[in-house]
Nucleic acid binder design. Structure first.
Lengths: 271, 271
DNA sequence: TTTGATAATTATGTATGACATAATAAAATT
DNA sequence: AATTTTATTATGTCATACATAATTATCAAA
């Protein structure tokens, strides 16, 4: 109980120091704008009408505070009650602001322990609002496109990091695919298995997560008639063909092969 | 006052209908697990220990509700007080849950009017937590890589949508670049201008936003010694070279040229 | 009737106090 | 010393009250 945590003392001081500044920031919303001023600069000011709520300001202050203090992952931030005192607002507001930080993935909070800094999982956050039914059409189509971009563009990382085991696993995955009947040309399950493995091979976790997030959207767009054109059934470079190139070819060849492999999708997008 | 809004009546009924179901969902956390059961299935259950808070459940219910009712952008959702009654929890909890939806970009709320559905701006949300100083090293590097993937992979969309005006504009941008001195080889300003324009040309707003979000991270990683290797100064395919290909070449050629153009970055990543 | 100002209403925003609950630390028991 | 019990602490939830902004209703004047 004696040493408590050094950090507490530290932040407490900081908060005291910043108290006035923070308060000012919070209450500076009602500044009077001089009546006569140059039109262009006025327009800039007039747009900046402060519609932000208390919570907005507190949130801003907190984020700024975190960055200023260069807090690292695992560091704990002041308790709710301390913050209420330091910022002079109610716990309600503090909690809402903290909640936002939590949503952004900047902090995690546990009972008794308070809140600690965390490294945000970008796509987990984003994934929560990735609901195909709610996104507008244009965005959906664009996400569809992005997936194509990613798969063509990642060739170099594949070649840099692929192992013999990866190749074997890819072969296994392909082996499980049904014979090439037109119906099964686009069995989503096998597509996911194969292309997902490719993302794995890049060793880029962030990319992988991104792909995982995009996938349901891709599927949704592919199957619901958002793309004017019908689903084509022409067969281009096969999965096995891709593996062959990955095994013995070059990134350059792979990009072209993948581009070809995805031709069906491209045809649906372009005129 | 007579017609009020039809929607109110509608949702009200829905809520009444779903009342029991929602309540059940919320209060189903304390189900007893039979003491003796098969180990594997037990493990599945045991992992599912419900650490979710009330707010979590309400959030889930609300999102589900939105999707179920197939609410469209602009539709308004029940008021806080109606929700408190329908779900049987305090307004505090409702507000926190609504706040989350707001953070996800699923709704917007205005005084008096209540909350209305919106189409989430995915990357605006994500951008809020895209603070280079807080993200962990590995993620930062991975984002660095993703940018490279995107620029190589987007060739087809460039060629599909580029116009003569775009080419002209690109030329202009390049013309403004300083002579090729080694110091300026990587002037971030010009890099942004040029590559940003490329993203524009793809016509993919989502991609563009994504790039905008990635950019500060890319810059940060590039300049702070996170990548072990030094910044190289060898010159590969130039911006003008890329434009030439975009004007008269093929996507295939462009991908390779871009790959070459980015060689400096790749060299820093790979051994 | 239309217009403009004024008042009432309504739903979110903020504040406050109370208690529940879970995690931790301290104390007590074996 | 190890284990159990108790106390403490900080977040989670609830309830109530009032503030504030936006809408609607009301009414006076042109």
């Amino acid at each position: 109980m004696k040493h408590k945590n050094l950090f507490f003392v530290f932040t407490h001081l900081i908060l005291e120091k910043n108290k006035f500044q923070l308060k000012f920031l919070i209450h500076s919303s009602k500044i009077k704008i001089p009546i006569s001023m140059h039109i262009p600069s006025l327009q800039k000011k007039i747009k900046m009408i402060d519609t932000t709520s208390l919570v907005d300001k507190v949130e801003e202050s907190l984020v700024e505070f975190l960055l200023e203090q260069k807090l690292k992952v695992g560091d704990s931030i002041p308790k709710e009650l301390e913050l209420t005192q330091a910022l002079g607002v109610s716990r309600t507001v503090i909690r809402e602001a903290l909640l936002r930080l939590r949503m952004m993935g900047l902090i995690e909070t546990k009972k008794k322990k308070g809140s600690v800094i965390t490294s945000p999982d970008l796509f987990a956050i984003m994934g929560k609002s990735m609901k195909p039914h709610i996104l507008d059409l244009e965005t959906l189509k664009e996400i569809f496109e992005i997936r194509l971009v990613l798969e063509i563009g990642m060739a170099d990382f594949l070649f840099q990091r692929v192992t013999k085991e990866d190749i074997q696993e890819l072969r296994k995955i392909v082996a499980k695919e049904p014979e090439i009947t037109d119906q099964h040309l686009f069995n989503i399950g096998h597509e996911i298995a194969f292309h997902g493995k490719l993302y794995d091979i890049t060793g880029n976790e962030t990319l992988k997560k991104f792909q995982n997030m995009l996938l349901p959207v891709f599927d949704y767009v592919h199957n619901s008639g958002l793309l004017g054109k019908p689903i084509l059934l022409r067969k281009f470079v096969s999965h096995n063909g891709l593996i062959d190139i990955l095994e013995t070819g070059t990134p350059e060849q792979f990009r072209n092969a993948m581009r070809n492999h995805l031709e069906n999708h491209f045809l649906r997008i372009f005129e």
